[in-house]
Amino acid sequence: MPISEITVLPLTQAIAKGNPTLPESVIQSLTEAKVICEAASGYAFRIFQQIEDPSLLYIIGLWDSADAHNIFLSAPENQKLLSLFKNNINFEGDRGLTTWHLDEDVFTVDPSSGLKSAFTAPAISYNRHFVSADKREAFISKFLDVKGILEDYTKPLKVIGGWRIEKEEANGKEREEWVLFSGFNSVDHHMAFAKTEPFEKYKQIAGFVEGFEVRHLKAIEGLP
């Protein structure tokens, strides 16, 4: 099964939340980058813009393995890709380009399920759950117990999650990260979930995490 790449591209220029339209030069570079990535991996790639901070872009795509992607990162094709963004992307520092992988194919939907990809939604919830290594099994057990609550709220959009392959450290200890994607009609539609009665059970997963981060993504107009 393929794994998923998540690359975050922080633009050098600020993009206003009230006017998130990207410069044409950035659109052109993203279009070319998508072609390069898909040719190298043989799988689909999609590019999104964060709603809360429109200057953050997300490349999400599939590879046969993390090793296959890492080989590409050393290839001339990737150097060409990076050169496309040399004037538009921050590459270093706390707000620099980051790349990592999930152990799950986040795009594929079983046609017989009657569901649609979360990535077709107007607003895509990108939830990062930070879990201590010793609570990984307990967390996923609880998540599977309450997952249906979120699925009922987001139907017919699929809820899909995966574990981050590359581990981070927090307070000197390695920690796990569970990333969850789900689709909504809007950010407000997602926020309204917390006001429903079933959410009282769903929020039990909070007892198994050290912290979490919630952001929302949207498709970029003008990209194929």
Rank of each mutant, 00 (worst) to 15 (best):
T196D: 05
E200G: 06
K195P: 09
Y126C: 14
A138M: 04
Q50L: 05
F212N: 11
D105I: 07
L115N: 05
I165Q: 04
G114L: 00
K201H: 10
N78T: 03
D53E: 15
N19E: 14
T12W: 05
E24G: 15
A206L: 13
F139Y: 08
A121C: 08
F139E: 08
A39R: 05
E52L: 07
N19Y: 12
I47C: 04
I6A: 12
P2C: 06
E221Y: 05
N185E: 09
M1Q: 13
S55Y: 11
E24M: 14
G211S: 07
H189P: 10
I124F: 01
I59T: 13
R215I: 04
F130H: 05
I149Q: 02
S74H: 07
I60C: 04
S117I: 09
E38Q: 06
L30N: 08
G183Q: 02
N87R: 06
F48W: 04
V146Y: 03
L9Q: 12
S83T: 10
L81E: 11
T31H: 09
K80M: 09
K135C: 07
Y126S: 13
E32F: 10
R95Q: 15
I51W: 04
S41K: 00
S182T: 05
F208G: 10
E24A: 14
E210P: 09
K173F: 05
A40C: 08
A194P: 08
I59M: 12
L30R: 15
H129E: 15
Y126K: 02
K86P: 01
E24K: 15
I71K: 15
R136Y: 03
L217N: 07
K203Y: 02
I59C: 08
T12Y: 09
I60F: 03
G61T: 00
F193L: 03
A39Y: 04
E166F: 13
I89Q: 02
G61V: 02
M191L: 15
L115Y: 14
K135P: 11
A194M: 06
K135M: 10
R215H: 05
H129K: 13
Q50Y: 07
Q13C: 14
E151K: 08
K173T: 05
D53C: 01
K142L: 03
Y126M: 06
N171H: 13
A192L: 06
I220F: 07
L62Q: 13
A192M: 12
E32W: 11
A118P: 10
A121L: 03
Q79D: 10
K86S: 13
N88Q: 08
Y126I: 14
L97I: 05
I165V: 02
L217Q: 06
E92H: 04
R95G: 14
N90K: 06
T108E: 12
E168L: 10
A44F: 10
I27K: 12
E32P: 14
I60Q: 00
K203E: 09
A206R: 11
G93S: 04
L150H: 00
V35G: 08
E197Y: 02
T99D: 10
F72S: 02
F139T: 09
G148R: 01
H129Y: 14
I160W: 03
N70V: 15
